[in-house]
Design a protein around this nucleic acid. Structure first.
Length: 283
DNA sequence: ACCAGCTCCTGCTTGC
DNA sequence: TGCAAGCAGGAGCTGG
């Protein structure tokens, strides 16, 4: 899916359109995505004022004045596209409805936010804002990688004794929240760690290096507006451009980008997902 | 407790 | 050109 940087990018694009604005009405065009929507979702959204937008892990959180929060997950192919809004002096005109436009938010000022998701792995739910942490999406989630609670001591402790590959451990949202396949591959390249290494066998120094590397990759990607492979678009419809900066992800057969390294980027399947790495400089 | 594998779904790309 | 297989950014669930 969109991983943390893509979700952050979408949230930042929605913020100026939705914050302090009233949702005049919502079209709910089907009863579910990955899970059923709340049966009364439309009634709970119609007429509500948005008081703020946040991100937690790969979820966009839309806080409403009624003490409720709308939770949005983009799954693999979900988009939240803004049309009909004045942004930076440009008017984004409405476009014809498309296949897979599952939920449409009509803002009181005429802007429109459309949730489109061909694969329907996305999700929406609503919860009392003060119960958010207890919601099943968040109850077992690890720390935000860009927060202070994510540090070397915590990560070392979490990986200690783990027999699974470090690749799988960093994809485990209970250990750290928000990383996906792309950014884990890039982080492991930057730290010179093979995705095949058992998590519990990392040297303390390597675990310590992972923390700043994770922060750096995510911050770089956010600055680039995320990565657009096939589906991802920012809320204004533009592409992200971090995909041009991949060192290893989707680079099978390319020469290793490390200076002086004679390696070639290799692809292996780990628990059903592609891992890309240089077998020479990642150990 | 931990871990690998399967599953949901559509659509694009690849190979014969 | 046509068709089928393979693959895709997630993550909950099952069974070992």
């Amino acid at each position: 899916m969109p991983e943390l940087p893509e979700v952050e990018t979408v949230m930042r694009g929605l913020d100026p359109v939705m914050r302090d604005s009233v949702i005049a009405s919502v079209d709910v065009n089907r009863p579910d995505l990955r899970w059923p929507f709340p049966v009364d979702m439309k009634q709970r959204l119609d007429g509500a004022r948005v008081v703020g937008l946040r991100r937690r892990s790969k979820y966009v959180l839309i806080d409403l004045d009624r003490g409720e929060t709308l939770i949005v997950h983009l799954g693999m192919s979900g988009r939240m596209l803004v049309t009909g809004a004045m942004i930076g002096g440009f008017h984004h005109s409405h476009v014809a409805p498309e296949k897979h436009d599952h939920v449409v938010f009509h803002m009181q000022d005429g802007a429109r936010v459309t949730f489109n998701d061909p694969r329907r792995f996305g999700a929406m739910d609503m919860v009392a804002t003060d119960q958010l942490e207890q919601h099943k999406f968040f109850a077992k989630l690890g720390p935000e990688p860009l927060s202070n609670s994510f540090d070397a001591a915590y990560l070392y402790d979490s990986l200690k004794g783990r027999k699974s590959p470090i690749k799988s451990a960093l994809l485990d949202q209970r250990i750290v929240a928000g990383l996906g396949n792309i950014y884990v591959c890039e982080v492991l390249f930057r730290t010179g760690i093979s995705p095949l290494r058992k998590a519990g066998t990392l040297k303390k120094q390597q675990t310590e290096a992972l923390v700043p590397a994770i922060r750096q990759v995510l911050e770089d990607a956010i600055l680039a507006g995320g990565s657009s492979l096939k589906d991802f678009r920012r809320a204004d419809g533009e592409l992200g451009y971090f995909q041009h900066r991949f060192n290893v992800y989707d680079q099978e057969g390319a020469p290793c980008p490390t200076p002086e390294c004679s390696g070639e980027v290799k692809r292996v399947i780990q628990s059903g997902r592609s891992s890309f790495y240089c077998p020479i400089c990642q150990r």
